[in-house]
Computed example of a mutant assay.
Amino acid sequence: MKTSNITQWLKNAAKIAAINAGIFLGLFLLVELGLHVKSPNQNPLLGPPFVKSAFRVHVPVYSHSLAANFDGDDLWGGRRYHIRTNALGFKDGVNRDVPLRSDRRRILFIGDSFTEGAGLPYEQTFVGRFAAAFPDIDVLNAGASSYAPSVYFMKIKSLLDAGLQFDEAIVYVDISDIQDEAIYYRYGPDGTIQWTNFEKKCTSPEATLVIEPSWWARPFYILEYLEKDRFMRRALKDVRNVSVAELRKPGMSYAPDRDRASWTYDAKAQCYGPMGIEGGIAKAIENMDRLHALLSERGIPLSVGVYPWPQQLLYDQENSRHAQIWRDWCANKCRKFFDHFPIFFAYKNAHPDFLKDLYIWTDVHYNERGNELLAQDLIAKYR
């Protein structure tokens, strides 16, 4: 090919490339403009943990809840899952209206993220499985992430004041409730619940992941999304390859020093503020006493359930202090006490890979199998 022809071909190729680049840049800027007009304050391409979830909403009286009649996806630790809520803002199998009265027997569950069923659709959670096992019962799940006895009392009181009727309440008290009562929840002057970290030197590993975009990505929603998506994919790949030994090292997910879990076997566990572990326990019991009195006035029986975190299976005993506290509290107050520690310890003793079998990997929450095991035990003990 002659030099003049090569030169002309290169000029044509450069011209075509420039035109294509111009078209691409124009479309990119046009899409960016549309995204910024539609959502000027928040990148609509991002979901949790990078931005606030539309699934979780603020409630002035008892701090927070789930959005009513939500039907969409949410993320938990990189797991995308589909969620539906009913008209009360309770996680449910379908979007549905919930009348204040029901012709069927009605049971209200409440607890924190374990009861909500973090990372799983309703049907795979232990509450959803319980509902499927008892189709004649109208099951309501009022649980949500980070609840504690202060919220159990205030939320149920709010529901009762609004006229909601139910025949029984089942409260699943979480191990993290003690720290939540010690440093995260306070009653304000107006009697509503304030939810924040009152012990600033302590940070929860469940805190929202904040990743600042690079300077070149900051002005553009699309570039910010691509950068954070790349970060998350790499992080999840690294997580899948982490060994149990690594996760048991100090500061890691399954370490013995994880403050939210270690109080049951370590009296010197940190991050419980001036109130301390014993103060957190006393406050949790005080609020459960208030809840029991509230329900007793209305003739509504109360049951309580407990279950182990990975730390209890690794470093604690079957008759954990957590189980002891709520078994003793329930003695003259509860219709039933559901102690799920034995079934989980039995599984641990029979299955070397119990952590991967039962928990979302690197997380303390139950996966589908863990929820199934808890549900089977609950259903058997409830009948």
Results as ranks from 00 to 15, higher is better:
residue 210 V to T: 11
residue 277 I to C: 06
residue 335 R to D: 11
residue 35 L to Y: 03
residue 174 D to H: 07
residue 361 W to R: 00
residue 95 N to R: 05
residue 49 P to R: 06
residue 271 C to A: 06
residue 328 D to T: 15
residue 65 S to A: 14
residue 235 A to H: 12
residue 132 A to H: 04
residue 131 A to H: 08
residue 186 R to Y: 05
residue 80 R to V: 12
residue 276 G to I: 03
residue 78 G to K: 01
residue 44 P to M: 04
residue 330 C to Q: 10
residue 33 L to Q: 11
residue 272 Y to S: 08
residue 365 H to R: 11
residue 201 K to W: 00
residue 184 Y to H: 13
residue 361 W to D: 14
residue 101 R to G: 11
residue 378 L to R: 02
residue 121 P to H: 11
residue 350 A to E: 14
residue 276 G to W: 06
residue 165 Q to P: 05
residue 154 M to Y: 04
residue 195 W to M: 09
residue 213 P to D: 06
residue 88 L to F: 13
residue 8 Q to A: 14
residue 89 G to D: 09
residue 165 Q to M: 07
residue 306 V to C: 10
residue 131 A to C: 07
residue 92 D to V: 02
residue 131 A to G: 00
residue 46 L to G: 05
residue 263 W to Q: 05
residue 23 I to K: 04
residue 36 H to T: 09
residue 64 H to K: 14
residue 20 N to R: 04
residue 4 S to Y: 10
residue 169 A to Q: 07
residue 251 G to Q: 07
residue 142 A to Y: 07
residue 183 I to D: 01
residue 312 Q to L: 03
residue 188 G to P: 02
residue 164 L to M: 13
residue 220 F to S: 10
residue 298 R to P: 09
residue 376 Q to A: 08
residue 256 P to I: 01
residue 66 L to K: 08
residue 293 A to V: 07
residue 192 T to M: 10
residue 168 E to G: 00
residue 259 D to M: 09
residue 274 P to F: 07
residue 279 G to H: 04
residue 383 R to W: 08
residue 232 M to T: 03
residue 102 S to W: 00
residue 46 L to V: 02
residue 130 F to S: 01
residue 260 R to L: 12
residue 94 V to N: 14
residue 274 P to V: 05
residue 371 N to F: 01
residue 334 C to Y: 04
residue 150 S to A: 11
residue 155 K to E: 14
residue 367 N to K: 06
residue 120 L to Q: 10
residue 209 L to E: 07
residue 222 I to P: 00
residue 265 Y to P: 00
residue 317 Q to A: 15
residue 173 V to R: 09
residue 294 L to V: 15
residue 169 A to R: 09
residue 242 V to G: 01
residue 113 S to K: 11
residue 36 H to Q: 14
residue 290 R to D: 01
residue 56 R to I: 13
residue 205 P to G: 10
residue 130 F to M: 02
residue 213 P to V: 09
residue 327 R to S: 13
residue 243 S to M: 03
residue 316 D to W: 08
residue 310 P to W: 00
residue 146 S to D: 07
residue 369 R to S: 12
residue 256 P to N: 13
residue 264 T to R: 05
residue 365 H to M: 06
residue 105 R to K: 14
residue 227 E to N: 04
residue 78 G to D: 07
residue 21 A to V: 05
residue 285 I to Y: 01
residue 53 S to T: 12
residue 81 Y to C: 10
residue 260 R to G: 04
residue 210 V to Y: 06
residue 324 Q to F: 08
residue 363 D to Q: 10
residue 232 M to I: 14
residue 330 C to G: 09
residue 87 A to K: 01
residue 217 A to E: 10
residue 318 E to H: 09
residue 343 I to V: 15
residue 338 F to S: 06
residue 317 Q to H: 12
residue 185 Y to P: 07
residue 9 W to F: 13
residue 356 K to C: 02
residue 74 D to E: 14
residue 75 L to V: 15
residue 374 L to S: 12
